[in-house]
Design a protein around this nucleic acid. Structure first.
Lengths: 344, 344
DNA sequence: CAATCAAATGACAACGTTGTCAAGCCGGGG
DNA sequence: CCCCGGCTTGACAACGTTGTCATTTGATTG
């Protein structure tokens, strides 16, 4: 059986088949396929033609085994995380990987998790993951960062914090956005503005809260702790927190929830008290999840270009892995306020 | 440098290190690690101890290259698909893969797509994907099925159709569920029941519609085509279709939408006409997306155990790949009606 | 025209595992 | 006591690619 027949039968030609077809050595084929320099133009053409004809695709396992490079990126995320967020992260990361011919391996994690370090270490060493993308709030876990540094595995964190020295950091200006959102309400006459915080373990929580306080301070409005409640980025906690705020002797005229799911909970709590939105209460969220535009009334919220952020994160990470280190690796992204009908 | 030192430095021991440590050959280590028979108990213990001590993890690339097996499963999905659905599919498939030490590679596809076959072929051959999981509606694409058969790549389809002879088929009894849902409304006195169909390219669309008609027939209610509108499984199409139904001279007293997103659109259309839900109009959806419980009023809908279905799909697929073919590979799953407040 | 040097190409080992096949070991039957 | 056969074990090739280094080629220079 000739190699050509073998290729046809198995549906995948090897580098030997291409070399034979093009009348060169396998090493030259390798050079052409990997865009290495020092190949004569005519030779390159011959090889590319053979590649084309045989529909040759390099075997990733052999590549990974031979070279140092596995061409695999890892994506570590919290499995119960809001999924519209993860969808965008996934889309962005995958599209970056596709451009550079990388694979993306997923590692969902349930938090909190005592075995986190062990699980991720296993994930990285076994699959020879070259680099890891950490969408928020994964970049905020000190244990994880320490592990990645120990394994000398570069990573790209999407996070509102800037603590990841030396690593790719995709920064969303959440504090500024939260401040703008709060100001938007202040400018429309609101003075008693409630705020529902997110999960304390997420870096975004502090930033969004800081933006709220910053806006109050800027406009000389006294901060009142009783207008602030703790939530956990989910519907039920938002509903409960909102119910408390609406029970206050002096009910706020507006509530900012730290994400859309909690804003949806706020809407429900308001409805249960017979309040009209936005006439009796303005409500704003964060994230511009698909949910936001499906609710009634549609939510005023803050949109982050998550997909682009994730694509940039993965892209810069791969650039670094390949030595094209474009400094500085800290890239800020701006958020945008989306005004809908839940606010007056 | 001894192999032990090398292992310590690089963070990953090889099979040689383990063999040396345990005083056996690499082949014996391989046998132990892969749970192959015919290894003396005492030998097995020695090896396992060495594995433990060196924190040995087999190199997936070498495994893939050497054996026929890549231990990689592919998940082909439509990238704009409803993502709560994909989240469950992903969760389920990943958890099955984790149990069996497989990796899962994702291949999102935008449909319709002329290059579909080429893209998937590349995906499968390059990464040496052993088998493919096809969540609905991917299992309904004839081109894709033909390709997979040509590549001799087994697959597991999650679909309401039963057309995938010889392959793992995870069946959701959507017609029965749709029938029950419609009957639920009929039993509560509704006679003029509108129906919003889904995307014609999805297998689920026909099944859900058939269930609706079945229920009408069963209760002697005449089918009226004007009460049925075409939608495309998204919010806007649902809203438009509902608006048409609500404009009818004889407005339906209930509307069944083929998924929750279209039901959300229906809610909005009803609100814009000043209708009270469920007093003036009952609305029901399909899928029990997170959205369903966040809307007002919360949606009556149909829940499918998607996560379990995907886990079973991936699990059975891997069992087949490993020769543990437990026939028959057609597994039906029942749906469940979730009654909430959008129906009277 | 020979010497020199850079560019182009190739031979071969290495990557870490599994598959194949042969060999060693051990107990039981003739 | 020897032989047989099954359980254990090991030696070695193979998987398909890249890295290293040597060799060939071709042009340039003295």
């Amino acid at each position: 059986m000739t190699s050509k027949q073998r290729a046809a039968r198995q549906g995948n030609a090897t580098i030997f088949d291409v070399a034979e077809q093009a009348g060169v050595s396998i090493k030259t084929v390798s050079r052409v396929v990997n865009n290495e320099p020092n190949v004569r133009e005519s030779t390159r053409d011959k090889v590319l033609e053979a590649v084309e004809r045989l529909r040759y695709l390099p075997n990733v396992a052999a590549r990974s085994l031979s070279g140092r490079r596995s061409r695999v990126l890892g994506l570590v995320y919290g499995s119960p995380d809001e999924f519209s967020y993860m969808k965008d992260v996934l889309d962005g990361a995958l599209s970056a990987c596709e451009e550079r011919d990388y694979s993306l391996l997923l590692r969902p994690l349930t938090l909190p998790n005592a075995e986190l370090v062990e699980q991720v270490e296993r994930f990285i060493t076994q699959a020879r993951v070259e680099g890891v993308v950490l969408p928020a709030p994964m970049g905020d876990l000190p244990d994880l960062q320490r592990l990645l540094r120990r394994l000398e595995t570069p990573f790209a964190a999407i996070t509102p914090k800037v603590a990841t020295a030396g690593q790719v950091t995709i920064l969303c200006e959440e504090q500024a956005a939260s401040c703008s959102l709060t100001e938007f309400l202040i400018e429309r006459g609101h003075r008693a503005i409630g705020f529902i915080k997110g999960d304390p373990d997420h870096g975004a929580t502090a930033k969004r809260f800081a933006g709220y306080r910053q806006a109050l301070a800027k406009h000389g409005i006294r901060y009142r702790g009783r207008l602030v409640r703790q939530g956990y980025f989910n519907f039920d906690s938002g509903k409960a927190a909102a119910a408390e705020l609406l029970n206050l002797p002096q009910m706020p005229t507006a509530i900012v929830a730290s994400n859309d799911d909690m804003a949806a909970g706020t809407l429900l709590a308001a409805r249960q008290r017979g309040l009209a939105i936005p006439e009796d209460l303005s409500v704003a969220g964060f994230d511009d999840a698909p949910l936001a535009s499906r609710l009634w009334p549609p939510l005023t919220t803050v949109r982050q270009p998550i997909r682009e952020m994730a694509k940039t994160a993965a892209g810069l990470l791969m650039d670094r892995l390949n030595g094209n280190a474009t400094e500085p690796p800290v890239v800020p992204f701006a958020c945008e306020i989306v005004v809908r009908e839940s606010t007056t």
